[in-house]
């Protein structure tokens, strides 16, 4: 059996004002990063109900990223 490299699926919650903006500027500057992250934009990470994190894991995320 071929050895498969672990490619985690990460779910991110990004604050509109800082982390989401930073992710946009990363794009503008063409910084390259691995394509494992799927993001949900929120107006502030204060919006994060802990339930969202549990739900993310329950839906199969290998990691949850919060940026704010």
């Amino acid at each position: 059996m071929a050895k498969q490299e672990f490619s985690p699926r990460i779910l991110g919650f990004l604050c509109n004002w800082c982390c989401y903006a930073a992710a946009d500027s990363a794009g503008v500057s063409r910084y390259q990063y691995p394509p494992n992250l799927r993001t949900i934009r929120v107006m502030c990470t204060g919006r994060l109900d802990p339930a969202f994190v549990f739900r993310g894991f329950a839906e199969g995320a290998d990691g949850i990223f919060t940026g704010g």
């Binding site: 992710a23 946009d24 990363a26 794009g27 503008v28 063409r30 910084y31 390259q32 990063y33 394509p35 993001t39």
Partner: peptide, 9 residues
């Protein structure tokens, strides 16, 4: 774009 095509060129 900003968070996909530009960063995974």
């Amino acid at each position: 774009r900003d968070q996909c095509s530009w960063v995974h060129a």
